[in-house]
Every structure is written in C-alpha cells, then in structure tokens.
Simulated scan of single mutants.
Amino acid sequence: FTCNCHFLLFFYVIAVNYYLAIIPFLSAVEAGFFGQLQHEIEILPPEELRADFCYSIADCRSRIPKLIDAWKAYFEYLLSTEQKSDGPSASSFSIEKEEALHYLWEAHVVSIAYAVPKFRNSLKYVSGPEASFGENWANAVDFIAATHFSADLQNINYFQAFLPPRMLSESDQVSFISDFSPEQNIVLLSLCTLHKANKLTGGTLLLLWRMAMSTEAGRAVVRSLVEKLVTGLKFDPVGI
C-alpha cells in the first residue's frame, strides 16, 4: 500500500481552508456585502467527497448554520460601520477595528473547530511530526484569536517566516531540526508545549487565557510581548 502523502496533506489543508474561504464568501453574500446579486451563488461540487462540503447559502445554512451565522455577523458589522454618516475619528476607527477583529476571530475559531475534527483522519497518512504540527497549530489558533491579532497582509507575511518552510518528516525532532532556523525550531517547540499544557489542564489554560484577554489592555500587552519576543528584543515586564 502506498499513498501520496503530499496530496493528502494538501487535501487536508484545502478542506479546512474551504471552511475559511468559501463559507465566509457565501456568508458575505447572504449578509448583502456585495449588494443585490441577480443570480444565486452556488459552488461547483468536486467529483469525490461531495458530502464533506456544502455549496450554496441554503445548503450551508441547513448543514452548518452556526458557521454561517458567525461569518454573517462579521460582514454585517463591517457593513454597519460603512453606513455611519459621520466621519470616523482616530479613536472610533480603533474601536471599530477591535470590534471587527472580535467578529473575525470568533468566526475563524468556529470554522476551525468544525473543520479540523471533520478531516482529522487525513492526518494519519502524513508523518507523525507533521500531523502533530497540524494539531498544535489548530490549538494555537484559539490562543491567537483571543488576542484579536490583526491578520493583515503585512503581519501575516512577517510572522509566517517563523513557521515550518516544509513538511515535517519522521526523522525531524522538534527543536533540533538542522535546516530550520532557530526561531522556527523555537516556535515548533512552543506550539507543541502549548498544546500539551492545554490538554493536561483539560482546556483550563485556554479558559484562563481568554479571561486574561477579555480587555483591550490585556490584549495589547500580549501582542506587544509577542512582537518583542519574535523580533529578538529584550522584554521588560515593567515597561512593555
């Protein structure tokens, strides 16, 4: 028995991202984000695994209403900010951005929570370290989401350099991978440790983290800390 592990990993990534791309798109259509469209939108189904996805607003709403509602709320909020007649001040823009990030990450987490378990079996065909990284990253998203991280192009382009540049193999030992940078090894180890700690506490660690991130001040402190850690700057716990 042989398998194309690269293809299976590719399928896993595409399948999960379907719920982070197509579902938001259909939700935006339902929210009226693109205005009044003359025709209904329907995604062409694949030849195989048709039952793993939904393809229209009605289809998705009947099968995954929680996901549709979460993404629709995000786009409805964006529309509500555009409809305000008075020009936004710097402070109001900051508040609106923070609120938008709240809706965005809430929807993102709901999609991940649904898609990852649904396609988890695909990970058994890739290496153990690669499968573990997939699970560790999905766990980390919950923690990242709580900080309302600004997932714009500039931030994503910068921070993705600290993630693995290739698939992990069975011979890769986390934190000791020779062709990874020291930062990439540290991030891999950190993601693994975070996931283990959250599992050992039965999810209590994430609960406490979300409580700590319940205020903008708390989120700002953590975002600043993360930026300083990854850029190699010295961290001063008093003068963050």
Rank of each mutant, 00 (worst) to 15 (best):
A73L: 11
A73T: 10
A73Q: 09
Y74E: 11
F75S: 04
Y77H: 14
Y77W: 09
L78N: 12
L79C: 09
L79S: 13
S80P: 03
E82T: 09
Q83W: 05
S85Q: 14
D86L: 11
G87F: 10
S89N: 04
S89F: 03
S89H: 07
A90F: 12
S91K: 10
S91F: 10
S92L: 09
S92K: 12
F93G: 00
F93R: 15
I95H: 11
I95Q: 15
I95L: 13
A100F: 07
Y103M: 06
W105H: 15
W105K: 00
A107L: 07
A107E: 04
A107V: 08
V109G: 07
V110R: 09
S111L: 03
A113D: 15
Y114F: 15
R120Q: 13
N121L: 08
N121C: 08
L123Y: 07
K124V: 11
V126H: 01
V126A: 02
S127N: 06
S127R: 02
G128W: 04
G128F: 09
E130F: 01
A131K: 11
S132N: 15
F133P: 01
E135S: 10
W137C: 00
A138K: 04
N139A: 12
A140D: 04
V141E: 07
V141L: 12
D142L: 13
D142A: 13
D142Y: 15
F143W: 10
A146C: 10
F149L: 02
S150C: 12
D152T: 05
L153Y: 09
Q154V: 03
I156K: 01
I156L: 12
Y158N: 08
F159Y: 10
F159R: 00
F159I: 01
Q160Y: 05
A161S: 09
P165F: 00
L168I: 10
S169W: 08
E170K: 10
Q173S: 14
V174Y: 03
V174S: 04
F176H: 12
S178H: 08
S178K: 14
S178R: 11
D179P: 01
F180W: 05
S181W: 00
P182T: 06
E183S: 07
I186T: 02
V187A: 02
V187Y: 00
L188Q: 00
L188W: 00
L189F: 13
S190D: 02
S190K: 02
S190Q: 05
L191E: 00
T193M: 12
L194P: 02
A197I: 06
A197L: 14
A197M: 12
K199A: 13
K199D: 11
K199Q: 13
L200Y: 07
T201A: 10
T201I: 05
T201W: 04
T204E: 15
T204I: 05
L205H: 02
L206C: 04
L208W: 10
W209L: 05
R210G: 15
R210F: 03
A212R: 12
A212M: 12
A212P: 00
M213I: 07
